[in-house]
């Protein structure tokens, strides 16, 4: 069985820095959330108050449904999900690493073009995937002995 996934404090700081860089790219980018694929909030950065835990759970459901729908229509794997709402745009995507356990959800005001948000979100997801955040902890073995 797999072990429960938790970030260490340095990993949280690394992620916060990455999300801050994302938000700094445009004043119209509103929020960025890293969550697990099963809907747990890990790191959240936002210009306004949001229910990060709720968003994380909804993101988990939506990405899984999109993956299922992509399968039904024979076009999987799903690369990202976009939502265009009256007052803004939302992008959801997997953080593609060896275990695919993380998701990134970003939002921006309606002033932002979807393509701009998508490109910045992809860049951030790639950055996160290169951090090795979901590498399983090293197995504890007996200490090496030296003659």
């Amino acid at each position: 069985m797999s072990q429960s996934l938790q970030f260490t404090e340095p990993q949280v700081e690394q992620c916060k820095a990455a999300l801050d860089r994302f938000l700094a790219a445009s004043p119209d980018f509103v929020s960025a959330i890293i969550s697990t694929v099963d809907g747990r909030l890990l790191v959240e950065r936002s210009r306004r108050e949001i229910g990060g835990s709720r968003v994380a759970s909804m993101a988990g459901s939506l990405i899984a449904l999109s993956e299922a729908l992509s399968g039904e229509l024979h076009v999987k794997p799903c690369q990202h999900v976009t939502i265009t709402a009256q007052l803004g745009v939302i992008v959801l995507m997997h953080v593609q690493d060896s275990r695919n356990l993380l998701a990134l959800t970003t939002s921006a005001s309606h002033e932002v073009k979807l393509g701009t948000l998508l490109a910045s979100s992809r860049r951030t997801a790639t950055e996160l995937s290169q951090m090795g955040l979901t590498k399983p902890p090293l197995t504890q073995t007996s200490p090496a002995t030296f003659p």
Binding site: M1, S2, S4, L5, T36, D38, R40, A64, L65, L101
Partner: peptide, 23 residues
């Protein structure tokens, strides 16, 4: 069935590897 099972990353992972997240 249509499934939305994903890898469990919380305490559920001690019980089973995948969990339903949408329906």
């Amino acid at each position: 069935p249509v499934s939305t099972d994903v890898a469990a990353t919380d305490e559920v992972s001690a019980m089973k590897e995948a969990t339903t997240v949408a329906m």
